[in-house]
Design a protein around this nucleic acid. Structure first.
Lengths: 155, 155
DNA sequence: ATTACATGTAACCATCATAATTACAATTGA
DNA sequence: TCAATTGTAATTATGATGGTTACATGTAAT
């Protein structure tokens, strides 16, 4: 069978991350209402089970409070104390030191083969850390404020 | 049927990148010899066709010279003028502005849903750029020197 | 206690990126 | 012409992702 799919589509970091940010921002903006998984799913446009799974990760990371049987989720920390990095770590979209994969089993008989992994790993780690540092400098408060700002602009 | 696979293994950037760096470093270190796809494959420990494919990308990016029918590859630029970022771009492991994926079709009826993409995109872009900038500050020369250094240490 | 409704979680699936592999056409030099 | 090599397409196995269904568990209200 012929499998057709878009050319040049390349792996990127799971949308679980952007959904996590969406969820937190929405819980805040809907703080006077009840943020059930169904409500959140309606905004994200996905299945409530997907939301509950991500919510479980945010809960485990201490970012939200949710209770079995009780409708709704609440933020645990202050908005200004939750960075994008916190969410990124919470939803486990990238493993520690493993944003980049390095080919395994290079030839130990070759000077390059037997050193390439140890040479490259710290360089990749520096790059990954630079990215994560950038995520650490933005808070959910920034995100919420920007959303409110954009809402105002469209009257 | 039960499918068993390792828990918690998460997508990361294709090893085409690390293989590309490996190839360039090896062409340099083997500059007095002939770097055929088979030779390179032997060091990377993969199939020559995989090497030829990556080589095609490095060639397209103007980093190496290869000719059909003629054995061997050569570097086009000076070692110190090829950065990891050049290789990363050449092998197309991440698309422009798309290191992170953002969930699509959020609900336009919701204030968060209709703004989240535009709010998040530039933040993700800043993080991606920070990572790429770090890659831009390391050259293949640095990599080769480090490999030689490591070789000396193990006398 | 029963009922209604939520959350927590497991199982399963369709989609499709990755890298390996095979095969072969095209190109070159001897 | 022949042998070797590159270029490239087709095929495959593996497994990550996100959607979906199903249901057990937990809570509150009547």
């Amino acid at each position: 069978m012929v499998r057709s799919y878009k050319e040049g589509v390349i792996m990127s970091i799971s949308s679980r991350f952007s959904v996590g940010v969406h969820i937190l921002a929405l819980i805040e903006i809907n703080k006077d209402g009840v943020s059930t998984s169904e409500f959140l799913a309606g905004s994200v446009n996905t299945n409530p089970a997907v939301i509950r799974k991500i919510m479980g990760m945010l809960k485990k990371a201490g970012l939200v409070q949710v209770h079995p049987g009780i409708a709704g989720a609440e933020l645990v920390k202050d908005l200004s104390e939750i960075t994008l990095l916190d969410v990124y770590k919470a939803v486990e979209v990238v493993q520690e030191k493993e944003l980049f994969s390095i080919h395994d089993n290079p030839n130990p008989e070759c000077p390059v083969g037997r050193n390439i992994q140890n040479t490259i790993a710290p360089l990749f780690e520096i790059a990954q850390t630079a990215m994560e540092k950038a995520l650490g400098s933005v808070t959910i408060e920034d995100v919420v404020k920007d959303i409110i700002e954009k809402e105002k602009l469209n009257h």
